[in-house]
Every structure is written in structure tokens, then in C-alpha cells.
Write a protein that binds this DNA or RNA. Structure first.
Lengths: 195, 195, 195, 195
DNA sequence: TCTTAAACGAGACGGTACGTCTGGTCTTGAA
DNA sequence: TTCAAGACCAGACGTACCGTCTCGTTTAAGA
């Protein structure tokens, strides 16, 4: 994929084409063979790249997948004032993210390796949650002050529920109807279950 | 060679002591070295058992862990009429289950391998959810009829939220304060976030 | 894991030092534990080499032993004109070859596996007999023409007798007196048994 | 094969039908899968017999094969006075014995295991050679006294040549023309190679 | 007739070698 | 200093066979 076949084009500088080829191959392989079916050798072969070129860039399969799967920029998720719209946007965004077929495959594997690698844990937290958590904490404070939200509600609980539910429904139960999952969760979050 | 040094006590029947030793060793190793650090050879050695005795019983590490971690009987979880108490009991039960250190280690690994092994997916679903789901569906129907619960609420959504949140907070974020997690989640489920 | 502890010195080329170490270890183990007591793992360990490095080079234990035991060059065995001297040299050479302690151990094992592996059969034939057979056939033709040898004598019979007798006496009966075996066989071949 | 399937007919006595079934299965398997392809389990299954019944009778595969392949009685081989006829009879008998397809397969395996098991070595020697060697020694003494045989000829040399040549030609080179092998060897033994 | 003792088929047991695969490190030779 | 290629060691994988052992049944021989 990268180029020629047995040649490369940059002298003593890392070739960006290698990065791109590896990440693209990773995304492709994730849906083809799954996280656990993926090997470094397999990625290298699919990317048309030598294995050392991969080890030079990432310390483990989890790090490759992490970079391949999650966009490098945290999107501007929390911004509205209207609380219903805001929660709806957060839930639909979360469900859309974890509903991507590539992410569905990647998440359980990443979670599994996170437990043994705190580095990875931190990277994933920062990439996926930290920004949103801070903003959501601030928004909740505002909403609580204005009485829009009950004071018992904490940002971490909300994020646990949104991410956990999405992961469970999409990566574990493998549900296909994203719309339904997001709608039900939004309703539940906003109103609770009591009639 | 010098082989057959030790004895066993059951003729052509599988020795329950081997099962017990393997499952106990699995639980012990889960917290000591983690799911991914565990090998079949390691389990066999820790259990004082030959590897073939393990392969005779379980087809993969995930199946061993599954049996080691989850009790063979589905507890009588859903039974009360008082909806608040019932939800509280469900949430606290779920949090207690997924908060067990052994389960915390096991869950991400199991989830990862479930995606590649539908057998495992089915086993876990039946072991953990099927019974509760049926009962909860029935209870919800009753509660909805009596107006205690809003009609939009579905059993699958509730279970996704409870299990997903517990897994995310306990296995992924590794939170230690089970009480707080359960209390917050119960409150959120019952009342929603709106003031 | 802590891996890749040691180094090797040739890039993408097979390291001749590995070949040498394996073959030397094989020769050593042959006399220490015998052919059937030798395992690929044992050879690898004794040679300080990984098992895959062995499987990369030889398809079976028999092939390793074959290469370890027999020198890669067919010596210049058949060359003299004086028939008595020539036969004496052939017999003594054969007895010396099969009398080597390493060869004594290797031969029965190799023979056993040859029956199931035609590849091995061909390799051993070419290595040990083909060259000698051709030369001996030619010499016999000369000698027959000059009346030095009876016309009934065939090269294959001579080689069967020399190799078979040496193997039987040395590898099977484990006789130690090479000199006596060679002398008796030479006498018998030259003069037959009739008085 | 032996009988019924899960029953046997003798009380606390070994069932001769089991012996017979095992030996017959061994002979059959030898030509079907070869010595090294044969397992105790395979023999037991082919004989319709449990493995312990085999271990109760023979200590190793080699011992089974030994008994399966060689007739329990040493035939009356050495008996004639006419030396040419006697040698011819010995050679043809030896070639016929080692030319049997079952024996061809068995010999290299047995030879291989003999080196590690002196018991086996002794059994085979007694079964195949001891009787013949004594008689031949005596006959040679007579023939030497009457000048029919050159005094240098020893019985062990003759037996090494006959057995070794037969094994090499038939088990190793896998020659099919028994007649030719026996005729050539007889001629060589009687007259030597000199014209 | 009843008891004892041994052989039987079946198959689990601990152990170990097999041959394959993956992980992570290193060196080559070219660019 | 990068690159592709690939050899290297370490070690886990799942399979197969080994030789031992126990089970539960069956049966002959001794009491």
C-alpha cells in the first residue's frame, strides 16, 4: 500500500505514508478478522510494511488500534444551553461513535488491554472522556444553579451511563438499531423510569 | 520414561477435584496476573493438573474464565413489588457482581473474545441476562399497567444501562466506591436528571 | 514479556553458527541419550538455539541427524587398480564409517524413519552409496574384462554385503573389534568360503 | 475382534483371544501404517481390546512387534551335510524371512529400539540367531576338519553377512526380487569374488 | 451356593514432545 | 537515519501419545 514495493522514498525521516497505510490496514482488519484475530505481522503484511516500522511507531497492538480507531481531535461536543438538546446530542454522539463497526470491534480488545497497561488507560481516558467530562461538569453546575437539573446528578455518573450503555448494547450485545438505543437512553436519562 | 507418577481416584469418570482446582486457580490467577497474563499452561500448573485435563473440559481460556467467574445458578433477583426497592436491589446486585475483583478482571477479556465466538456470547447472555430479562419484562408490564412506570421504559434498555454502567465504572474506570456508584445509578434510573 | 534477550549477527540471512551449533549438539546428544532419546527441544536447548530456527532448516529429526552424521563430501573411495587393495580399502572404509560411535547410534533410527519417508531414503542413498556404486560398477567392469573378477559379481551385491554386514555387526550387535570385522569380511569377499 | 464388545469370557485368566487379536492387528498395522506410524492405542483399537490388556502383556511396542513378527519356534535350519546346499538353504531362508512384508517393516524399528533396550537385544538375538549360530559353529568345525571350508571362516562373520545383507537389501533398499538377492549372495559366499 | 480374585473395556489422569504461531529485537543492504 | 526483509530467541498454542490407574462388570475357581 505504502508505495513501490521494495523501495521507500524518504531518507532518514519517518515516512507518513507508512503511518497512513498501517492505520488504514488496521481499520480494515478490525472488521475483517476482529481484534483478537489481528496480529502485528498481519497488519504489516496488509499494509505492505515491515514489522520493525510498526514497532518503531507504536509499542503494542492496542496503541495502533487506539490511534487507528479514534480521531485525533476531540470534537466540540458540549456546547448548547438547552438541556434536553444537549443530552440528546451527547447520547446520539456517543452511540454514533461506539456504533461504528470499526469501533465496535476495537473497544472490547482495548478495554481488555487497558487493565494491564495504565498508559493505555490514561490515553483512552484523555482521548475520549477528559474533555467532555470537564465541560459537562461545568454545564451541570450551571444547570443545577438554574434548577434545570436535580442536584444529585454527577457528571461521572452521566458519562458512565452513556458510555457504558453504548458499549454494552453495541459492542457486547451487538445491537444494530442505533436510533432506538439512543432514543431510549435519552428518554431514560431525562425522565427516569418513574411514571 | 518415568511417567504416571501420580494417581487419581475416579476411574473412567472426570474427577470433580480437577474441575474445582482449575476453577479456583483461575480465580486466583485472574487477580494476580490479569486475564491476558493468564495462560492455559499457567492455569494447569497453578492447579496442579495436566494441560490435557483442561482441554478435555473447556475449549478455550474464555470458557474456563466464564465458568470460574460466574456462579452456575442465576440468583433470584427480580421478585419484589415495590418498584423503588426492586430497582435498588437490581442495581446493587449488578454493582456487587461486577465489583468483585475477580469479575472486574474477567469481564473485559470475556467481552473481547465474545465478539469472535458466538458460542461464548450465547453462554454469557444466558448465564447473566436471560433469566433476569424475562422476569424484568414481566414486572415492567405489571408496573406499567398500574402506572408506576412510564410506558416508554423497556427491559433491555434498563439492563443495558445497569450492566453497561457497572462494567464501565468498575472494570474500565476501576472505581472503588461501589456504594456511590450504585446509589447514583439507582437515583438516576428512578428519577432521571430533570429537576 | 522480557524477550529478545540475545542477539544474532546476520540480518535477513540464516546464521551458519546456528547450523554448526545444532549439528554439533546433535552429534553430542546421539552418543549421550541415543537417537530415540533425542528430541527437537533437547537439541535446540543443547545448541542454545530456538526451536523455530531448527524447523526453518530441517523438516524432521531424521534430516538433522542425517546431516549431522554424514560428511557433506563423498570421499574418494574407489580409485585403485589392485583389486585386493581396493576391496580391502572399501571394506575398511565402510567399517570405519559405521563404527563411529555417532554413526552407530544414528543408523537404526535413520533406517526406521526411511521406510516412512522416501525423501530421506533418496537423500541417504545419494549421500552414501550413489557415488561409490557408479565407480564400483565401472571398476568391476574393468576387472571382469581382465579376468580378475568372476563375471557373476555385481556392484549392488557387493555394496549390500559391505554396508549390511557393517551395520549389522556394529549398530545391531554392537561389536567393538572393528579390525576383526573388517579383516574377516575382506577375506570372505575375496575368497568365498570354499576351501 | 476378540468377542462381544463389553464382555469377556474368561474369569481371572488371560484371554488367549486377546493375545491373538493384538498380534494379528499388529501385523496388519505394520504393513498399513508402518512401525513408527503404529501406536499402542491404534493397536488396541484395531484389535478391539483395551489398552491395559496390552500393557498387562507386553512392556513396549517393540515387544509386541517382536512377538507378532517372529514365529515362536526356531525352525530346523542347519541340518545338511552338503555344504553348498546348506549355505543355499541358510541364505534363502534368511532372505525369505526378512523379505516378508511384515518383517521388512518391523526390522528397522526393532533395531532402533534395541540400542536403548538390552532386554530386547537379547530377546531378538536368542530368537533369531542363537540357535542357528551354535549349529552353524558346529557344522563349520566339521567342514573345516574335512577341508571343505577354509579355516579362516567364522560363524559370526557368516551370520553377520547373511542377516546384514538381507536386512540392507530388503528393509532399507526395499528390493523386491528376493530370488536374485539370495542367488547372488549364495554365489558370493561360496566362491568369493576372485576369478 | 457364595465368595474371592483376576481379567476385561473404557477412559481420565499427569506428563511431555510435537510442529505452528506470535511477540519483540536485531542486522542487513539499499535509499 | 529510515526503509523492507527476514532471522533470531522465547514461549504459548492445541494435539497426540505415553504408561498408570480406577471404575464397574463378568467369570472361573475355591470354600
Amino acid at each position: 500500500m505504502a508505495q513501490g514495493r521494495t523501495t521507500h522514498t524518504l531518507g532518514p525521516h519517518q515516512d507518513p505514508a507508512v503511518d497512513a497505510a498501517v492505520l488504514a490496514a488496521t481499520r480494515r482488519l478490525l472488521v475483517e478478522v476482529g481484534y483478537s484475530g489481528m496480529t502485528i505481522h498481519g497488519i504489516a503484511a496488509a499494509a505492505g510494511v515491515g514489522r520493525p516500522a510498526i514497532y518503531r511507531r507504536w509499542p503494542s497492538k492496542a496503541h495502533i488500534v487506539h490511534e487507528a480507531v479514534f480521531p485525533p481531535l476531540t470534537p466540540e461536543w458540549v456546547s448548547e444551553n438547552q438541556i434536553e438538546n444537549e443530552v440528546r446530542r451527547l447520547v446520539f454522539g456517543t452511540v454514533a461513535l461506539f456504533g461504528d463497526p470499526v469501533v465496535r470491534e476495537a473497544i472490547p480488545g482495548l478495554m481488555s488491554e487497558m487493565r494491564a497497561d495504565p498508559t493505555l488507560q490514561k490515553m483512552l481516558d484523555e482521548r475520549l472522556q477528559a474533555g467532555v467530562r470537564d465541560k459537562l461538569t461545568q454545564s451541570l453546575a450551571d444547570w443545577t444553579r438554574t434548577g434545570q437539573v436535580r442536584p444529585e446528578i454527577k457528571a461521572t455518573t452521566l458519562l458512565d451511563v452513556m458510555a457504558g450503555t453504548a458499549i454494552f448494547a453495541l459492542s457486547i450485545r451487538n445491537v444494530d438499531d442505533l436510533e432506538s438505543v439512543a432514543t431510549s437512553l435519552t428518554d431514560l436519562l431525562l425522565h427516569g423510569i418513574l411514571g
